[in-house]
């Protein structure tokens, strides 16, 4: 549990950070909370020569809600998300999810940007951002671009990020007023990654589902947007048959690994159980 040697940088502006990362290229790794990279370094599974700590960059922090869009700076901590009163009005599922990440100590350090950018399928925010159809703003010293959360993840620790590029902003279309939402996470104990988790957003018109969005956490190489399952709910009454159909479509896209959290079959079935529970809870909450 003793890391190898590395240099530590703590830039105070985005400009400076992008410059350092651009110059150092593949030898550098951005530090955005550190709850993945630091344990990996202690196990000597990762050995970046330079750590670039983004924690002192104020312009990467904060939540702003305007018009139809919610913008969250990538270095906003989970704790800050949890205590944002605007967010609790506009998009409460973010807080429901944040509260299920690790424990309070971790949430004081862990950031939304670190959570989405690392490409760890166990992280909760990648699934949630796909559920919300968020867009990530990626910046490097050669400019900025935008990639949708649903297109960002290629595999385990494999994302659309290029060398020298970081996520600077998460942009979320504000869910419609009265939307139903739920993030249901099965885990072994507080602080654990999900055995399986599901995020659901529903827009209802009376007892009919107008549209639905379902995403899954930790049951594949990446978090998964369950497109067919989502579409299958549109126009339905969210009765048992409709939910069973969505569950089976969602289970169909999972490919979890067998580990201490359970067998492949169990984890896939649990993804289904979480989807059913999240749909029912979201329907209850919708107005």
């Amino acid at each position: 549990m003793i890391p190898g040697q590395f240099d530590y940088h703590r830039p105070s502006s985005k400009q400076e950070a992008l410059q350092i990362l651009g110059e150092l290229g593949g030898d550098a790794f951005p530090l955005a909370g550190g709850h993945s990279i630091i344990p990996m370094m202690k196990l000597r599974l990762a050995a970046p020569e330079h750590l670039v700590d983004l924690g002192a960059i104020d312009e990467l922090k904060g939540v702003s809600i305007g018009g139809n869009v919610i913008e969250i700076g990538s270095m906003t901590t989970q704790h800050e998300l949890l205590t944002s009163s605007e967010l609790s009005q506009a998009c409460p599922i973010i807080q429901e999810t944040s509260a299920l990440i690790a424990d309070p100590q971790v949430r004081y350090c862990g950031t939304i940007g670190g959570n989405v950018a690392n490409g760890d399928p166990g992280n909760d925010m990648p699934g949630l951002m796909q559920c919300l159809d968020a867009t990530y703003v990626l910046e490097s010293n050669s400019g900025a671009r935008e990639v949708g959360a649903r297109d960002f993840y290629n595999g385990i620790y494999d994302t659309a990020l290029n060398e020298g590029e970081i996520v600077t902003l998460v942009r979320i279309p504000t869910p419609a007023a009265g939307h139903g939402y739920a993030y249901c996470k099965l885990k072994r104990k507080v602080g654990d990654y999900a055995t399986a988790a599901a995020g659901v957003i529903l827009n209802m018109s009376g007892s009919t589902c107008q549209s639905a969005s379902i995403a899954l956490t930790n049951v594949g190489d990446t978090a998964l947007y369950a497109a067919e399952a989502s579409d299958s709910l549109a126009g339905s009454d969210l009765g048992d048959d409709a939910i069973d159909r969505a569950v089976s479509l969602a289970e169909g896209i999972t490919s979890p690994v067998s580990d201490m959290r359970g067998s492949e079959e169990y984890r896939s079935k649990m993804a289904g159980v979480m989807v059913a529970r999240a749909i029912r809870l979201a329907a209850e909450r919708a107005s």
Binding site: R188, T195, G262, Y266
Partner: peptide
């Protein structure tokens, strides 16, 4: 008696 093991047991008994 972890959740997956208990679930497997329930499954063996035809309960899930």
């Amino acid at each position: 008696h972890t959740a997956p093991r208990v679930w497997e047991h329930a499954k063996e008994l035809g309960l899930v």
